[in-house]
């Protein structure tokens, strides 16, 4: 579903990251491990179409991601790539349901309304009209997962999704990500240094930086 070919990326003044070629098929999950500063998040941004690499290519379902430009890339990302961030980053002026519906709106796929479906799948149906500031951390993270899933993407990227959660919630979040990705047949990539996740997902790679 997603594959990378000899990506290179470097920030100014810092040696280039070593990013191995990787491939995740639909329904598979991959854990990306590494110390902080090893380029985990940078890799996730590159895979998510948020940050263009210096060199190399990212293929999503056979399509070269960065051959798309501007609005086309934005719409493609909205439709095909779901991203879960370390913090939920839910838009406070909107309700839970409106937050989850937002990807539908931005990628113009409102006809295919999956909001209620994912509220149910993630067990937050009772929070549908809740205000954002009344949610607990775990609930907020589930809302952000629902938002990442609502367009039924081909790829799900998660950046330290469990970092700020307790054991119980961390386990639930990883389980949800795994099961939903499997249901959608989507490729799941989780960037983390959280030991609790390692037991849940077998496949992993570890990133290193030359000088670290």
């Amino acid at each position: 579903m997603i594959a990378t070919k000899s990506i290179q990326f470097s920030y100014e003044g810092i040696p280039a990251f070593e990013i191995p070629d990787l491939e995740i098929r639909g329904g598979e999950a991959l854990l990306v491990l590494g110390k902080s500063g090893s380029g985990k998040t940078t890799l996730l941004n590159i895979l998510g179409g948020l940050l263009a690499p210096r060199k190399g290519e990212i293929l999503v379902d056979g399509l070269s991601l960065y051959s798309l430009k501007g609005q086309k890339l934005d719409k493609f990302r909205g439709k095909n790539i779901g991203i879960v961030f370390q913090k939920p980053h839910i838009l406070a002026p909107l309700s839970v349901a409106e937050n989850i519906a937002l990807p539908h709106f931005f990628s113009k796929s409102e006809a295919n309304d999956k909001v209620d479906h994912y509220l149910k799948e993630l067990g937050i149906m009772d929070k549908k009209h809740a205000k954002i500031n009344t949610l607990s951390e775990g609930e907020a993270q589930r809302v952000s997962i629902a938002r990442a899933l609502v367009n039924e993407p081909k790829i799900i990227l998660a950046d330290e999704p469990t970092a700020s959660l307790d054991d119980e919630n961390a386990r639930i979040v990883v389980q949800l990500l795994k099961s939903q990705a499997a249901k959608l047949g989507a490729a799941l990539l989780i960037v983390t240094h959280d030991q609790r996740i390692k037991s849940e997902i077998n496949q992993s790679i570890t990133l290193k930086r030359k000088d670290l």
Partner: peptide
């Protein structure tokens, strides 16, 4: 800024 970045991440274009 976070909100705007999130909107971009879930498919909003610069123009939007």
């Amino acid at each position: 800024k976070y909100d705007l970045a999130v909107m971009r991440a879930i498919g909003a274009s610069r123009e939007q």
